[in-house]
Design a protein around this nucleic acid. Structure first.
Length: 945
RNA sequence: GGGCAGGUGGCGAAAUGGUAGACGCAUCAGUCUUAGGAACUGACGCCGCAAGGCAUGGGAGUUCAAGUCUCCCCCUGCCCACCA
């Protein structure tokens, strides 16, 4: 009988369903495993072959866990509220609920084709009132704890989607759904106080060692905690000054550099505010502000590259040194970051530096960086000496080449250096040193760089530790004429001309490389920490010490700020959970009593957005007008709805207990099933995970859930690209549908191929030819059943047991590709040989998670009535993995010159004897200095030349 | 600009510091044939008739031994971003 995937797959999918094979029961005595997919949003497009990749992985993983004896929870559901469903419904003129039902049906059919082991009795749907009742209930708990509040602060408004958006819904200042430029609009909003959890969301990332580092890093960026000082600069010379313009407050993370603040820069937004309160800015300033604000809107914050600004005609007093410095309006200062104004320290901030260069503003270095040498670190018990030196970059008289000063003896490649004599001009020192050490003697120019630093190192040629104050000099030669130099100097300096690129690449010491770059490419602040200079009483302190001291000195406040803002939680749209609040003229804001939950979405004729800032629900008077639960007086319902993120912020808890009518999850069941052991998905690196962690922590604080973090391990998949390497999309016409693949090649082939393509986390292009190779593997498996015999084939034991071991370990580690290739190795090995029945059964079991249909069919052919998917995972025998003879490489001086077959545990003498014969011609007449033998791996003869 | 992940054959990719390229695709040669999306046998990093040499983005280093560890440079992808 040939391998007929069509018949087999349909047959078993039916049987599994009717026998409830994958139903999960709560069994407190058994150890559990909770394997969860990020549940999908059921779009109208249906699935392409990229979508199931994560579902296949969790299917394989959860099948392994079940076979290993775990009580396994592996559910699926639908995240079906939100703008896309609503926009789809409006466009196609059907009710969103109808559209969602239709889409879910289609999704389920497509998932069913692939033979997944979901327990469908636990299916949930965020738009089901029995589900969103609890979403509303959790919202009310947030409200009761003061974590949900109303606000009239201006929020982001998308004119196209006609709804408010949270900061997280923006992409570079544009609406992430439709790309429209977002406006600021003041309107009443519900907001969740996620900032109160910011520190815990940040710190508890440390509780998640099994999360990918890049996801954690993205979350840290998103939370954006930074510590710094709030400092006031008083203003003078403000035309039309009012109380609003007496002073300007800035936020800085570097108060230690305050003595180097040579100007203040304010955002166009703040300038506008000042104008509104009476500042009589000049015509030019006025025009600049208007233009900068307009650019923000037309180009978005992202689009503006060039830094521009204008002197505001105002002065500020630097509170550190009481110096009068100018105030500029600058487009690189943003209105909604920090206070909307900065103190600019061009010597130590890249952006301020760029601006200061452009407008010729003073640059004052106030931190002297200390470079601690890693190649020649200071030594204990050696004399410490202090000196002043120059580091000298020397430019060629004609070409763009520079002098490299190499030393064979000390193995370094650096610039020239030399000690400054008492009272000597650093440029003269530099010229003298170059004449003495290189011989070049005529100079066109020389200048001292506006950058000093300190080096701390051990000087091997003098045998002392050095702490040196460095002045940096750039010399340019007039011509190539050379004078006499001593032999001693010649031996010490191997002089050569190098291009700029070669210099940067070859210089062996970081400080010299930095000086070279500074001299030839222009200035850039560096991040070596250091001590203060030009800072009055604070000179000599380290940056860290000075930060708080200077903040105190100027009367500033040390504070913590976050990039993450409170979560704007209301949407002025129809298709979402109604916010369960009643507004009563007499009692104010009244939460809907628990007994009246859920507040169901009413039927409505027109669910298109109104654009007035009110949701379509506001027009349904019968629904809006209610009696106040308190005073029974006339009251109105809240008409805003929740954002799409609401339903997915707690759904993993509902799967534990999906039908519970008394609470969102039974406490006992929660304690048994928590936490999610493996969570698998692709999108949503930041927002969903942050929101979910936030709600979970909140529920933890109410003692409603029993763990601090919901997801122990996160596996983040790489997307499958189209065959042309682009994203699969209707637009490119490169979509491949699983339906077609399953029909032609079978679900098992598709599953196995998606696991075999490459590393799970990599984005890899689909390749149908490669997939056919996997189908060939399944056919060879099918053929193998003909050579099964009663007695085991001992020759296959080692490879079989190695395969069992590797497949189990690789699935556990989500290294599915190498698990599959190991099974291919086994089948190649078994090809043309007799396979013992017991061996065959073990192999079918380890293949079963990947290819559930064909293995089930082959299993039945052996006469079994019970499903293979209820079998347990085979145990490998460590003894059988061991082989009698193995081939190891024989090296001579690390190069492979032959090989030899040995027992893996052969003694060294035997190995050497056999090895010598194998590489005889390489050893003749040579002195054998050493032999390295690693049993089972390698034999290396080290010989003299 | 910052962070993270990467850079290995014609392609997808393997490789606890120990024979680089497992496994698969494609290609080539052959066998068989009921001419099929066949199957089977073999070859397949580069240069070279061979002996051998050269090869994991480039350069240095540590080591008996480096794709793997250290340092520097270059490039690509993803995320964040004039975040003060």
């Amino acid at each position: 009988m040939r391998y007929d995937h069509k018949k087999i797959e349909k047959k078993w999918q039916k049987k599994w369903k009717s026998s409830n094979l994958y139903k999960t029961k709560d069994d407190p005595k058994k150890k559990k495993s909770y394997v969860l997919d990020m549940f999908p949003y059921p779009s109208g497009e249906g699935l392409h072959v990229g979508h199931p990749k994560g579902y296949i992985a969790t299917d394989v993983y959860s099948r392994l866990k079940r076979m290993q004896g775990f009580n396994t929870l592996h559910p699926m559901g639908w995240d079906a509220f939100g703008l896309p469903a609503e926009n789809f419904a409006i466009k196609n003129k059907i009710h969103p609920r109808k559209a969602v039902e239709k889409n879910i049906k289609r999704f389920k059919e497509q998932l069913a084709m692939l033979g997944f082991n979901y327990d469908w009795s636990r299916e949930i749907n965020t738009t089901d009132p029995a589900y969103y009742k609890w979403t509303q209930w959790i919202f009310l708990q947030l409200y009761k704890k003061g974590l949900a509040y109303q606000s009239n602060e201006p929020i982001n408004w998308c004119p196209s989607c006609q709804t408010g958006l949270s900061n997280e819904d923006l992409d570079g200042g544009l609406c992430e759904r439709c790309g429209s430029q977002v406006e600021k609009r003041s309107m009443r909003q519900w907001v969740l106080r996620i900032t109160r959890y910011a520190d815990r969301l940040l710190n508890d990332l440390e509780l998640l060692p099994k999360w990918p580092e890049h996801i954690k890093e993205a979350q840290r960026n998103w939370i954006g905690r930074s510590e710094g000082a709030l400092v006031s600069f008083s203003l003078t010379d403000v035309p039309g000054q009012t109380s609003g313009t007496h002073q300007v407050e800035v936020f800085t993370t570097r108060p230690d550099t305050m003595f180097g603040a040579t100007f203040v820069a304010i955002s166009p937004e703040l300038a506008q505010k000042w104008i509104e309160v009476g500042w009589q800015a000049s015509k030019e300033v006025h025009e600049y502000v208007q233009k900068a604000l307009a650019d923000r809107i037309t180009q978005g914050v992202k689009g503006v590259q060039e830094k521009t600004g204008i002197h505001a005609g105002i002065s500020a007093i630097n509170p550190a040194n009481q110096e009068k410095i100018p105030v500029w309006v600058a487009n690189y200062v943003l209105g909604d970051v920090g206070t909307g104004a900065i103190m600019a320290v061009p010597a130590h901030d890249e952006r301020d530096f760029e601006f200061a260069k452009k407008y010729q503003l003073p640059i004052v270095q106030v931190v002297k960086p200390v470079y601690v040498d890693k190649i020649n670190p200071v030594r204990e018990g050696v004399k410490n000496t202090k000196r002043s030196i120059v580091i000298i970059a020397v430019k060629h008289w004609e070409k763009d080449l520079y002098l490299m000063n190499a030393s064979e003896k000390y193995k370094w490649k650096i610039l020239f250096t030399g000690g400054i004599e008492e009272g000597e001009d650093p440029v003269e020192t530099a010229k003298r040193e170059i004449r003495e050490e290189s011989g070049y003697k005529n100079f066109r120019s020389g200048r001292v760089l506006d950058f000093v630093h300190k080096d701390v190192f051990y000087a091997p040629h003098k045998g002392v530790n050095r702490e040196v104050d460095v002045t940096n000099v750039l010399l340019e030669l007039e011509n190539g004429e050379m004078g006499e130099i001593t032999e001693e100097e010649q031996a010490l300096h191997q002089v050569s001309w190098k291009t700029r690129e070669e210099m940067i690449q070859e210089i062996s010491h970081d400080n010299h490389r930095f000086v070279f770059r500074y001299a030839t490419e222009g200035g850039r602040p560096n991040d070596w920490s250091g001590t203060l200079i030009h800072s009055g009483a604070f000179d000599g302190m380290t940056s860290d010490q000075a930060k708080k001291k200077i903040t105190d000195h100027v009367g500033g406040v040390w504070t913590t700020t976050y990039r993450i803002k409170d979560w704007v939680f209301s949407r002025q749209r129809y298709w979402g959970e109604p916010i369960p609040i009643i507004h009563c003229a007499a009692c104010g804001v009244v939460p809907v009593p628990d007994k009246d939950l859920p507040v169901k979405l009413p039927e409505v004729k027109n669910y298109a957005p109104t654009g007035t800032g009110e949701s379509p629900l506001a027009a349904i008077e019968k629904w809006v007008n209610v009696a106040c639960p308190h005073c029974k007086g006339r009251a109105k319902r809240e008409t805003n709805t929740m954002p799409q993120w609401a339903g997915s912020s707690w759904y993993w808890l509902r799967f534990m207990d999906p039908k519970n009518k008394k609470s969102f999850v039974d406490k006992k069941k929660e304690r048994y099933w928590k936490p999610v052991d493996v969570y698998v998905g692709g999108d949503h690196a930041v927002r969903h995970l942050i929101y979910a962690r936030f709600w979970h922590k909140f529920l933890y604080d109410l003692h409603l859930v029993s763990g601090k973090e919901p997801f122990t391990r996160l596996e983040f998949l790489g997307f499958i690209l189209a065959e042309d390497g682009r994203k699969m999309s209707k637009r490119w016409g490169n979509i491949i549908r699983p339906d077609d693949i399953v029909k032609t090649w079978g679900a098992d082939t598709l599953r196995l191929y998606e696991m075999f393509m490459g590393p799970f986390t990599d984005a890899i292009a689909w390749n149908t030819n490669n997939m056919i190779g996997v189908r060939r593997f399944l056919e060879r498996v099918w053929t193998l059943r003909e050579s099964v015999s009663a007695k085991d084939n001992r020759d296959l034991d080692a490879v079989l047991h190695r395969t069992i071991k590797k497949v189990g370990e690789d699935i556990e580690a989500f290294k599915f590709n190498t698990a599959v290739s190991q099974m291919m190795v086994f089948v190649n090995e078994a090809h043309g040989k007799v396979v013992g029945r017991a061996q065959w059964e073990m192999f079918l079991k380890i293949l079963a998670p990947f290819a559930p249909h064909s293995t089930e069919e082959l299993w039945t052919q052996l006469g079994y009535k019970k499903s293979i998917h209820r079998e347990s995972w085979p145990k490998y025998s460590a003894r059988k993995i061991k082989v009698a003879v193995t081939t190891i490489a024989v090296q001579v001086n690390g190069k492979v010159r032959g090989e030899v077959s040995l027992a893996p545990d052969a003694p060294k003498d035997d190995a050497c004897a056999a090895g010598r014969l194998a590489v005889l011609k390489w050893l003749e007449n040579k002195e054998e200095k050493n032999v390295i033998y690693v049993p089972g791996k390698i034999l290396n003869f080290v010989i003299g030349e």
